[in-house]
Design a protein around this nucleic acid. Sequence first.
DNA 1: CTGTATCCAGCCGGATACTG
DNA 2: CAGTATCCGGCTGGATACAG
Lengths: 118, 118
Amino acid sequence: MQRRSDCPITCTLDLIGDRWTLIVLRDLLFLNKSKFEEFLASPERISTSVLTDRLHKLEKAGLIEKSPYSTHRLRMTYSPTERGRTLTPVLHEIVKWGRRNFEDTVIFSAEQHAYDKE
Amino acid sequence: MQRRSDCPITCTLDLIGDRWTLIVLRDLLFLNKSKFEEFLASPERISTSVLTDRLHKLEKAGLIEKSPYSTHRLRMTYSPTERGRTLTPVLHEIVKWGRRNFEDTVIFSAEQHAYDKE
DNA sequence: CTGTATCCAGCCGGATACTG
DNA sequence: CAGTATCCGGCTGGATACAG
């Protein structure tokens, strides 16, 4: 897709401004997930086709990279690149905002998330 | 739309995670725009129907409010609410990230933007 | 398990006409 | 000018089947 303008916000949104991409990045950066099945298991229930698509786009954008973790099977682990990790502050601000604005109804799971560490 | 999960990131994305909402908020928070025509004039060329829709959604979410600025005509000015202003840090992180990652191709206009101040 | 491919309904959004 | 309404093509994304 060609860029809509030269604004840094717009360019960023063209890359990660949809309903699923940042959720995958959350799983990678905060929940330390790395396998296809782990992303599928998140409560948002991303579909396999959307997950495949987003992993490809993120890899193409240089935000994640994949590497095989099994020698005799085609199994990949996905991990954020250095560049991908620089999105952490963005995600962190979103977490902070979300907690403030949805605190009345949000119930967090008991497990400790990486984004709890401040 | 019902919420996909109780994650603060997901809830926030359900509210502002699309290709247009944050651009409208950028215009409101950083470029001090307030009138329908001013939003339309942004380089991304948002369509009138999408703009109408996003203004409604933002108002319904309590992030902006509108007030008439002409007595004998139906003309509204839109301004961020206190709650809407709390999205500034999120937007600011996105600006910072976008500048770092698109610096090679991005050309900024000569005018001074509010998000330049840091 | 780790994905890919296909099908298809529904929504998004662009264009445009229209109202006050 | 300040929006709203309508039309409609195309993309998103869910379900499912399939492949290695």
